[in-house]
Design a protein around this nucleic acid. Sequence first.
DNA 1: TTATTATTAGTAATAATTACTAATAAGGAA
DNA 2: TTCCTTATTAGTAATTATTACTAATAATAA
Lengths: 141, 141
Amino acid sequence: MINVDDKIQELKERCAKANMRLTPQRIEVLKMIAGVNTHPDAETVYAEVKKVMPSISLDTVYRTLTSLEDLGLVFKVDNELAKTRYDADLTPHCHFICVKCGAVHDVHINDYIKAPDESYDYGEVLQTNLQVKGICNKCRG
Amino acid sequence: MINVDDKIQELKERCAKANMRLTPQRIEVLKMIAGVNTHPDAETVYAEVKKVMPSISLDTVYRTLTSLEDLGLVFKVDNELAKTRYDADLTPHCHFICVKCGAVHDVHINDYIKAPDESYDYGEVLQTNLQVKGICNKCRG
DNA sequence: TTATTATTAGTAATAATTACTAATAAGGAA
DNA sequence: TTCCTTATTAGTAATTATTACTAATAATAA
């Protein structure tokens, strides 16, 4: 599990560097995502943060998630489900995604490569795929 | 590139087995996806199929894509973009996704593992991630 | 403390996808 | 082939995740 305090410290530094304000909304949203391993969607983040900050709006959560992504503190977990899921753990790792309930679990790549069948206990594997993301040559000009 | 005729043949067999009707809409939609390597979204499939079948509706395209997926003839390419992209090539392979324009290119896994930097010429890599999809233990009961 | 302006709350708008209904046509039976 | 049954379709309305807009608020620097 990642260290939430370290994460908030990083938020402070990156906001300062990017000339962005360190708002309690940003702190709470990041704290929430970094504190769980469930890879929550925007609505879930909203519901959780609302408990400690009842005035926060859904719009702010969406905007904040985008800001945190721009700052390189969280990223979107690719999935074919309806809702976008977020992860604050930036160390290289993979995900097991249940296509039925949408649960997202971390998978440790080295263990998985060594013994895909025994390395974890998440469920029945239907498909494994590798995504490489970047900027294509056309877009680089 | 996959053989479109073989793909249509498979559609016939699977429809028969699944008690689903072999409609011209299903044939045209599958033909379109199988005939390109651009991993089109629903709207693009709609626009293309409309050229040869002007009466087709967008709703039918969406339903047909789901049917073809259920039949195991196409699958959704995971991406964090707004629109879902489809692929009819079921042989194990990976994708390079441009986070700027949304272009999706095929990447051949063995080449990529051997020499990630030289194996292809799609663009600048920002992130590589592996997704494992399946049914989690909870959902299996 | 004050001023500047990025950020927020609240709400409206957008866009992808799904649901609904009457009409149509695929495919089996006669 | 022709007729029937009912899955499927076209057209449109509804839904749902996400984004945009605006006036009010509050984080930072002077």
